[in-house]
Amino acid sequence: MTRTRAGLLDGAARAFAEQGLRRSTMQSIASAAGVAKGTLYNYFRTKDDVARALFSAEIVRLTDVAADLPPDQALVALADELATHPVLRRLAASEPEELAGLVVLRPERWTELTGWLAGLLGVDDDAAELAGRWLLGVVLQPGPTTGRRRQAAALAAVLRPPH
């Protein structure tokens, strides 16, 4: 990813966290990124394109956060990131219907997400489904940190393949 594109997505994350998805505009995203609106349009045609690109970039970032961790620690890291993500928390507080729209995935997108989780956690498809459903629950209702961490440990124990 180019530095400019990364800067635009950082600006989008700031704008979405401050104003929400609905109230953010291409101008507010450009301003948050410190660029002219024309520069933003050189990379993205619409605000929806920006949001999709930010979602994809966040998947890459989350992969980096959880890579090489054992499943229990990876689940904790992912849950903590999702529970404290400024854009997700803003949407939960002020635009819950937008958040719901983000977590209702088309079947092919869900398959892609659970495939990513299976590879990241080193588990089979069924275990990845279970982990994905739990993580979506964390997005919607993060709960206290101690509870998430206990749940992640319990889930990791369930996900472990039998010896």
Rank of each mutant, 00 (worst) to 15 (best):
D126T: 15
A74R: 03
D72R: 02
V50W: 05
V50C: 09
L155Y: 04
A30H: 07
P144I: 07
E58R: 07
A100V: 12
N42Y: 00
G7K: 10
A156Y: 03
G147A: 14
W110I: 12
L135D: 03
L117G: 06
R106M: 13
L159K: 00
R61D: 11
D80K: 08
I59F: 06
R109T: 15
G119K: 10
L82E: 01
Y43G: 08
A156S: 08
G11T: 03
R106I: 15
A131L: 05
L135A: 05
L130F: 13
A156F: 03
P161E: 14
M26C: 13
G143K: 12
L8F: 09
P96I: 11
A12Y: 06
L88A: 12
T111K: 01
L113F: 11
V35E: 02
D49Y: 11
D68C: 05
A128V: 09
W134K: 05
E18C: 11
L75V: 06
A100F: 10
T145H: 15
G119T: 12
G101S: 02
L117A: 06
L135R: 04
Y43V: 13
E112G: 13
D10C: 14
A33T: 10
L121P: 04
G34Q: 05
E18N: 12
L136N: 06
L113W: 11
D48K: 04
T84C: 07
T46I: 06
D125L: 13
P71M: 01
Q73L: 13
R14A: 14
R3T: 15
A131W: 01
G122E: 03
P162I: 03
E97Y: 08
G132C: 10
W110M: 14
L136S: 02
D80L: 06
A128W: 05
Q141I: 08
M26S: 13
Q141S: 14
S94C: 07
R149D: 04
L155W: 05
P86S: 01
G147K: 09
A100C: 00
D126Q: 12
L9R: 08
G132H: 05
R106W: 15
K47R: 12
V103A: 10
L62E: 01
P107L: 06
R5S: 08
A83R: 01
W110N: 07
S94K: 03
L102T: 00
R45H: 13
E108G: 11
A74M: 04
E129P: 02
A17G: 06
S56K: 14
L82Q: 02
A67E: 10
R5H: 11
P162Q: 07
S28Q: 08
R22C: 00
T84Y: 02
V76L: 03
P161W: 10
L21C: 02
S24V: 00
A74T: 01
E81N: 04
S31A: 14
A66L: 09
V35I: 09
L78H: 01
P86K: 05
G101F: 02
L159V: 05
A53C: 09
D68G: 07
F44G: 01
P142H: 14
L40V: 13
L40E: 04
A156L: 04
L120C: 08
E98G: 15
Q27W: 08
L8H: 04
L113V: 07
W110S: 10
A79S: 13
I59K: 08
T111A: 13
L69D: 02
R22P: 01
L88P: 04
G143W: 12
G11N: 00
A92C: 01
L62P: 02
E95F: 11
E58W: 05
A32R: 02
